[in-house]
Structure formats: structure tokens, C-alpha cells
Nucleic acid binder design. Structure first.
Lengths: 236, 236
DNA sequence: TTCATATAATTAACCAGTTAGTTAGATTAT
DNA sequence: ATAATCTAACTAACTGGTTAATTATATGAA
């Protein structure tokens, strides 16, 4: 065993990184059949759905391949193993969040405005991708061994910078007397909880209430509530 | 095959349910070796830990048996299958919560006091059992097929009554002008999110901050924050 | 008191189905 | 041709669940 050649190629994203004189013409993709980037994207998308629905252990690689209309071996061509695929999903989810949220936090808005913009941006990102919380929820709690390592990487890469900026906004707002004094270590996870939890619990709520919790109208109401709720809790 | 007798006995808890004229004397347990109730309890406890750590699909029945110092077959003697064991865990968790929280909601306290008592009781229950959120989180999102059925039962049995009482408190408080007007469908899940999320995220926070998020001191601070945060958001 | 019997509690060993991951080859654009 | 892209079929390992036997306890008839 362990003789194999098909070693996984980690860096799939580069397109025409002219390595060694081979490619010269302006054509931008070599030796390709079908649409490889699309295959990869389809796999990732299917993985998001599958991981969201069943969690990491419950997710079936066969199901992902089937949903992506792709042979299972292709998963292992693009991703080292199931774990790496899950990490790719995490990166996808959180890089999207960061892209949406960091510009706001780095803007020159006054604290109060900035906080509201942040909350809105965060909410909108999740509302546009209601599956994302479910992909993550199942994993950021496990402290044991490997799970921890995986999430720690994500945490350091995405959470830390966001948390840092957010703590700074809080400091400024408190100093300016606009915010009530709060510990970021308490405030930040509370906000995340308020925003995320509603979407995690939506399937369940649907069975209890008569209202569809993810209808457009409801989501608008929910957005207004969240902003108001946190405003009332934070602003003086 | 299928000749066997050892069919799973669902109702383990009854002790001296004198069935048919056979037993008459007051003796309460027959043909018993070891401490069966203890075995069952050990299994349940181990299951809580295992399900919390790995989720339902990731949990290993072998690991549960090992942790409970019990042969694996004994799991299936006390519980029909892995799924039934998980349901038993859910019942354990939520019946504990209900026991802790319903008396408060059924008391005669004025709305404001009652809400604060409720929040405190809820928080304390979770703080005393920080694993519980993790046991549940992984499951109440999956709407697909079986997962839904399982959680719907729990939802109807435990959530609905609590939600109902809570909605009533809100109505009264709002009517009395003590509370700001909020939709229970928004307020309730927000509160749950704020309380629960901190504990779910604790393992991760531990790796980011230097502070131990579950230290006694920190938990006291957190409790105060949660009550204050929600008070500020709800009370006029 | 004692011994046969029923029954509850427990276990070692096993099995069948599932699943992550592999392999050897096919297909296609250049 | 050749490297990139893709696939059907396979396998090694794992895991939920079963089985048949075993041990301990209580019961009650002799």
C-alpha cells in the first residue's frame, strides 16, 4: 500500500500560472475537457448542502458526488479527502463573510453607524446563505483533538481580525459615551448568537408556528428586530 | 432467526408495577444482578458526552459502551438502537430544562420579575450542563425526513409549552407598558441564542482568548451580562 | 433448608451493510 | 502525443446491531 501516484494537487485555483515554457499562446486553459472550474464549484456547492444537512460525520461523499453530477473519484482529485473538502467549505463560507464585513469595519464611519452597518451586513450575508450557520455549528464546539485544530485555523484566519476590529469599535463607542460599557468577549458572541440562531432553528420553528420563518417578509421583520434589539441593548 | 426472547423492554423505569396476580407481596425487584439503574444511567451519561463531542452520526456506540464501562450489547438491551438512545438523551436534557424553568413561568410573579427569573434559571441550567447545547445544536436544524420527526416530538413536548408561557409573559409585560413591544417569534429565539451560543462557542473562544471562558468567575460575569443585555433590550 | 426454576442483567464473539478512499483506465482539448 | 480531466469498479476498514451463552438473584415447592 501507499504506492500511489495520484497525489492530491493542492493549488487548484491558479489559472495560467505559466510554469515552464510549455504554454505560450493566449489561450487560458490547457488540456481540459468539460468545465473543470465548474466541476470544482459544483462539488463545493454540493458539499455545503450535504454538510449543512448531515454534519461532517453524517455527510456522505457519494451523496456529494451525486449531487454535483460528478464521479466520486473527482472529489479526491480536487480535494485530498473528506476533511480537506470540509475545510474548503469552511474557507468558502468564512471568506465570504469576511469579504462582506471587513470593508464596513475598516471604513471611517462613526462607531454607532459602523456597528449598525456591521450588523446589517452580517445579517444579510447569513440571510442570503441560510445554510451556512448549519455547516459550521456542528463543528466549532468540538474541542477534542482534530476538530479543534481545524477550527482553530479558521478562527485565527477569520474570526480574530473581525473580533479585533469589532472590539475597537466598541472601545471607541464606549469612550465617546455612545455605547453602554460592555466586554467584547460578552458582546460579540451574543450578537453572533442572535443573528445565527434564528436561522439554525428555522426548520424547527417552521414545524411549531404556522408562519414560514424564512419568507421574505419575515426576514425583513427579523432584520429590523435584530438591529433594534441590539441597538437597545448597546446604545445609550 | 428472530427466535429470540430478549426483545427490548421499553419501560425500564417502573419498579413494582404489580402486573397480574403473580406477584402479590410487597417485594419490589426480582431476578436482578448488579445495579441496573446505575448501568442505564452510566450509559445515558456517556451518551451525552459522546453525542456532544461528535454529533449523532459521529458518535460511536462502541465508545459510549466503553466510557460507561459496559458491554456494547447492553446499550441495545436498554435502548432499541442508537437513535432511541439519542432520543433518550434529548428527553433527559429537555425534561431537566423544563423542570427548572416551568415553575418560574407558572409562578405569580409580575412580568418583569418573572422574565428575569426565567432568564436566570435558563442560564443556570445551561451553565451547570455546558455540554447540553452541543448535544442538541447538531440536530435541530436538519429538516430532512427523520431528523425532523425526532425533533418535532421534542419541540412539541418541551418547547411549545415553554414558548407559550413565555409569549404570555411578554404580552402582559407589553400591555403593562413595562416591556417594549416585541414579537415572541423574534424575542424568544434571540434569548435562546444569546444564552446558548456562548457555551457552544466556548471551546473555540478558549483558543482565541487567553481567558478560560468557563471559569467560575467568567460565568458569573457572563450571567450578569446576559441579564443586563436582555433587560436593556426588552425593558422600557 | 434446599434445590429446581424463572427471570433479569451482562457479555464475548460475530456479521452484514456501509463508506472513505484507490486504482487502472478512458476521454478530450491542444 | 500528452497532460488534464473524468469515470466504473473495487477494497479495506469500520460500525451498528445481533446472538447465544453466562452469571446473579429471587421464588416457591418439597
Amino acid at each position: 500500500m501507499k504506492v500511489s501516484a495520484t497525489a492530491h494537487r493542492p493549488d487548484r485555483s491558479r489559472r495560467s500560472a505559466g510554469r515552464g515554457g510549455a504554454s505560450r499562446s493566449g489561450t487560458h486553459r490547457l488540456g481540459t475537457r468539460g468545465r473543470p472550474e465548474e466541476s470544482r464549484a459544483a462539488i463545493l456547492k454540493a458539499a455545503v448542502a450535504e454538510f449543512a444537512e448531515h454534519g461532517i460525520a453524517g455527510a456522505r461523499t457519494d451523496a456529494i458526488a451525486r449531487a454535483a453530477h460528478v464521479n466520486k473519484a473527482l472529489l479526491y482529485y480536487y480535494f485530498k479527502d473528506k476533511d480537506a473538502l470540509y475545510e474548503a467549505v469552511l474557507d468558502h463560507v468564512f471568506s465570504g463573510l469576511r469579504a462582506r464585513v471587513m470593508p464596513v469595519l475598516e471604513s471611517k464611519l462613526p462607531p454607532r453607524r459602523k456597528m449598525l452597518e456591521y450588523l446589517g451586513a452580517y445579517f444579510d450575508y447569513i440571510a442570503a446563505n441560510p445554510r451556512f450557520p448549519r455547516v459550521v455549528q456542528g463543528e466549532w464546539m468540538r474541542s477534542g483533538a482534530n476538530g479543534s485544530a481545524r477550527m482553530q485555523r479558521v478562527a485565527r484566519k477569520y474570526f480574530r481580525p473581525i473580533f479585533g476590529k469589532l472590539a475597537q469599535v466598541l472601545r471607541e463607542g464606549i469612550e465617546a459615551g455612545e455605547f453602554r460599557p460592555v466586554n467584547p468577549m460578552d458582546f460579540v458572541p451574543s450578537v453572533v448568537g442572535v443573528i445565527i440562531f434564528y436561522f439554525s432553528a428555522a426548520p424547527l420553528m417552521k414545524t411549531l408556528m404556522k408562519l414560514e420563518p424564512l419568507s421574505e417578509k419575515r426576514i425583513r421583520e427579523r432584520r429590523a428586530f435584530v438591529l433594534d434589539f441590539i441597538s437597545a441593548a448597546l446604545f445609550r
